[in-house]
Design a protein around this nucleic acid. Structure first.
Lengths: 118, 118
DNA sequence: ATTCGTTATATTTTCATGAATATAACGACA
DNA sequence: TGTCGTTATATTCATGAAAATATAACGAAT
């Protein structure tokens, strides 16, 4: 493909991957980052503002994740000493780890293909 | 990941990849299909209607493709016996072939990863 | 010169997605 | 009991991308 591209521009090969069920997306890079931020901050609202995402969107994503998993990936608590909070369960941690690994293999694939094709 | 997913739903791993320059996308699955339709029909407008895409969008994509390639990928002719038309150049055919091959390897990657992770 | 089907191009309209905004519920603690 | 920061939820608003619409240019053929 190299010989077809304008030599004064720089090109890159990029992509995205995700897991989806019939009706809804389940896991992707955005949800991965959200889960990591929730781990860090212990709260959906804090995670959302750290990512510059609206609270509602973050909450919707969490709701979608939990709705499609066999057991909860995050546990939310409402009210209480600090108003509540959210923790990532061991199952959620497993999902994070597995999707991170998948993502890493994908990036390796992209790099290898870029070297071959660009 | 398998053990984390609701067993009453079916999940699939999917993804997309594309080549882009700084300012603009260059090649992706949508543009591949457009190029194939142009090959088949010899016209941007026929290709667009076969794909149920607006002519403007198809024309914009063709314009973007040619603007980023070293030599034209498609040649357009305006006016004339049948009003004009569009042909895919040998360079365009090369792009089609290479991107199809890349796409096939990507699908193989996805299938292998799905088998591992889902 | 007129017709015809296409390319070329600008402008307006639709639509979907996420952002913003608003409000209620919650429950520990002072 | 009142406060506080959060979760939970509904509704409105903004924005960007694609569709729809409109019009001109083109050039071979009649």
């Amino acid at each position: 493909m190299k010989d077809l591209l304008r030599p004064d521009l720089t090109f890159r090969l990029t992509g995205r991957l995700w897991v989806e069920s019939e009706q809804d997306r389940f896991m992707g890079i955005g949800r991965l980052e959200l889960l990591r931020h929730i781990q860090q901050h212990g709260s959906i609202s804090k995670a959302a503002q750290a990512m510059d995402m609206s609270y509602k969107r973050a909450w919707d994503l969490v709701s979608s994740l939990n709705a499609q998993s066999a057991s909860p990936l995050v546990l939310t608590q409402t009210g209480g000493k600090r108003g509540g909070g959210t923790v990532v369960t061991p199952e959620g941690e497993e999902l994070i780890a597995e999707f991170e690994a998948l993502q890493a293999r994908f990036q390796a694939f992209l790099a290898a293909e870029a070297a071959r094709v660009l």
